[in-house]
Amino acid sequence: MGNLNVSVISNPEFLREGKAVYDFLNPDRIVVGIDENDNKEKIKKEIYKIYEYFLKKQIPIIFTNLETAELSKYSSNAFLSVKISFINEMAMLSEKTGANIEDVSKIMGFDHRIGNEFLNAGLGFGGSCFPKDTLAILNIGKNNDCEMSIVNSTVKFNDDLKDILIKKIKNKLGSVKGKTISILGLSFKPETDDIRESPAIKIIKKLMNVGAKIKVYCPRGMEKTKKELENYSDCIKYCKNEYECAKNSDCLILTTEWEQFKNMDLEKIKNVMKSNYFFDFRNMFSDNENIRNYFHYYPIGRN
C-alpha cells in the first residue's frame, strides 16, 4: 500500500436543531480551517468546487487555520449563550424594579449593534449545543491558563436560574410539597423531541425532590422523558393532552413554547384545575388581556 497524502480540514456547521435543512441551504458564512503545513491553494480549489452553489449565492467562504475554525464555532454558541443569560438576568431585575422585560428586549433589539434575536426571556438555554460548547470553552481556557470569566458566569447563572424560578413558585404557592404541578413542554425548544439539557426536565427534577407531584404533557418529548425519568415513575404522570395534564392540578407551568399551547382554551384549562396558578416561563400569554381573568398569572420579567 502506497503512501497516502491526506489533508485534514475543519468545516464547522452552524445549524439550528429543527431548522438544519434551511440553515444548510442558507448559511450566513462558510468557515474552512486548513492546516498550516498543507497545500492551501489546492485545498481552496477543492472547497470552491464543493461549495460552488453557495459561491453563486455570494455566501462568504472564510479560510483560516484549524484552531480559528474550531474556536469560531465555540465562540458563536458561547456568545449566544451569554446573550440569553444576560436577558434572563435582566428579567429577574425587571421583576424587582417593576420594569417590563419584553419592552426592555424590544428597545435593546432596535439597536443594530445588539439585534433582536436571542433576547426572549425564559428558562435559559438547553439542548445539545449551547451547554456543551460553553463547557468546551471553559475547558479550553483552563487548559491554556486563560480565565473565561464571562462564559463561566453565563453557565453559572443559567444553572442558578432554575432555582430562582423554583423559589418564585414556592413563594406564590406557599409550599409545593404534596401539590400537583402540571408541566406543559418537555423538549428544550419547540419542533423537536430533544430533551438533552432541557430546562423543563431540570425544573421537574427539582420540584419532585421537594415533594411535588408532577403531571406532564409535550407534543413530542414524552417518550424520551419517560426514559430519562424512569427512576421517578412513582411521582410523575404522563398525559395525552394539555387538558388532561391540567386536570385537578394546583399549578400550571408552561416550559416550552409549542404553538399548540398558544391555541389552547384557557377557560377550559382553568375550569379543570384545582387551583388557578399559572407560571408562564416563556411569556406566551403575556400580551393576552384576558389571561388574568382566569389565573393568578406569573410571566417572566414582569411585575
Rank of each mutant, 00 (worst) to 15 (best):
V82Q: 08
K19F: 13
D103V: 14
N116P: 02
F86C: 10
K226Q: 08
N283C: 05
A136C: 11
Y232G: 04
E70M: 07
E70Q: 11
C146Q: 13
L93E: 04
N293K: 15
E289G: 00
V82H: 02
E259N: 12
C235G: 02
P299V: 04
S175Q: 09
K170P: 01
E17A: 01
E228W: 01
R282M: 04
N143S: 14
M108V: 00
D194K: 12
L135G: 08
D280F: 00
R29L: 14
S7G: 09
N100I: 02
R16T: 04
I203V: 10
E67F: 07
Y297V: 06
K237D: 00
V104S: 02
D193I: 14
K168G: 07
Q58D: 15
M273N: 01
Y243P: 01
N241G: 04
S153K: 14
P27W: 05
I59H: 01
S94T: 05
G124C: 12
D234T: 11
I300S: 06
F261L: 03
L4Y: 11
L207P: 01
F285G: 06
C245R: 04
K156I: 15
L165C: 03
Y51C: 06
D193M: 12
K270H: 11
E242G: 08
T256S: 03
L229E: 01
L252P: 02
K83R: 15
E46G: 03
H296F: 12
N290H: 11
M208Q: 06
K213T: 10
S128R: 12
L4K: 13
K162P: 03
L266E: 03
A69L: 11
N116Q: 12
Y298N: 07
D287H: 09
L55V: 06
L4V: 03
S187P: 03
K205T: 05
K142P: 09
L184P: 05
I9D: 00
I195K: 03
S76Y: 14
I59D: 04
K177T: 15
N5S: 13
K73M: 14
G122T: 07
P131M: 08
L138G: 06
R196P: 02
G18P: 05
Y277Q: 00
R302E: 10
E257A: 12
A99G: 05
C129T: 13
I195M: 07
L135C: 14
L229Y: 03
L207G: 02
N77S: 11
S233N: 12
Q58A: 10
I140E: 14
Q58G: 05
K42M: 08
V21M: 12
F86A: 11
Y298D: 05
V272C: 10
T256G: 00
R282K: 13
K237F: 09
W258F: 03
E13M: 06
F281D: 06
K215C: 07
K96V: 12
K240P: 00
V272H: 01
A91C: 10
K156L: 15
K56G: 07
D234Q: 13
